[in-house]
Write a protein that binds this DNA or RNA. Sequence first.
DNA 1: GCAATAAACTTGACAATGTAAAGATAGACG
DNA 2: CGTCTATCTTTACATTGTCAAGTTTATTGC
Lengths: 191, 191
Amino acid sequence: MADSYHHGNLRQALIDAGIKIINESGEESLSLRKVAAECNVSHAAPYAHFNSKEELIEAIKSSVTDQFMEELEAGVAECATAEEAILAMGRTYLTFFSRNPDYFVFLFGKQNINAHLQMNKDYKNDYPPFALLKRMYRLYLEEKGIEKSFEEQEIDLIKIWAMVHGMASIACMKGVKTSFKWNDPDERLLV
Amino acid sequence: MADSYHHGNLRQALIDAGIKIINESGEESLSLRKVAAECNVSHAAPYAHFNSKEELIEAIKSSVTDQFMEELEAGVAECATAEEAILAMGRTYLTFFSRNPDYFVFLFGKQNINAHLQMNKDYKNDYPPFALLKRMYRLYLEEKGIEKSFEEQEIDLIKIWAMVHGMASIACMKGVKTSFKWNDPDERLLV
DNA sequence: GCAATAAACTTGACAATGTAAAGATAGACG
DNA sequence: CGTCTATCTTTACATTGTCAAGTTTATTGC
């Protein structure tokens, strides 16, 4: 299918090229025309698959999020208890974004996640990583036989998320090395 | 000085116009030419005061950070103890960015703070809000007569910062209403 | 006071970019 | 085979950051 008029799988190729460019030279330098050139198609070819630059970026975000989710789920899968799983998630969160800080800015900077959520129907209501944390947390409560009101649960979830996300933010911003640990007995968050 | 060839105080006018545009239509739509037009000068006039668009943006960031610092310090000034001051900082942090979420993305999204720090010699080493927190925290340790190693102190500071920053991030991203509270006895972070 | 110099601003130009419109190509399907 | 439709190209245009050269005003040295 090489050198043919039709690319074959241009849509995915554009997404991959976009990721490559972001990794190599950052999001600012990502242009539709460069992405098209990278795929050896004309500069307007992407418009057959995306209605705007923004749509391509959304697709790339989804792709990166998928990759992130794979790592999170792989880490969780190795855990025997929900408690361990939550700790593993925190570690994966930090290592994933420490390894490629550009992704952090790309996913959470600029446009907010909410906009991304609304454009992507696959995410029902929650951002997938957050949904996973929610499941693990509920499982954790079950395992420990802890009863909490809905509000208390939401607060705990936000607490965990804020802590990990905030630490990832610091790690990406300042290059600080951070690790994560959570001891349940008194709901304590430790670095 | 109106209608004269020389504007009089174009530099500040450009910064103010930039802030206005960001507030009205977001950072993406901020262009040098629009800023110049807003000030009724030609499109290249900004280059008499800034070497690039990036430099103007850095100046705007400094301006917004100054405003943020004023609010933080105003809140701190009303507190009798360092402990209260730290709590007040957390509240100000959240209310400031809840009130104008665009500033959060503008300050912390995209380019990281580190780049901003390096460009701005006024910030010696620490980001001013972080430096303020550091001072209050040290004062807090004195007040309570607590002795901690340097490493422990750094960890505590990152913990506090991550928590508050992470919550602000959630608030800005998802419009979640959040409040902040920190009880010292067991270094507990509560939403 | 006045000439020289520097600072602030304008004009014109250029390349890169997002996007739209119109046409070309090729595979799918009757 | 002929038509259709999705895919891709070409051309065109407006917006943008930036530069170079010129113009205007303020400042400084004499």
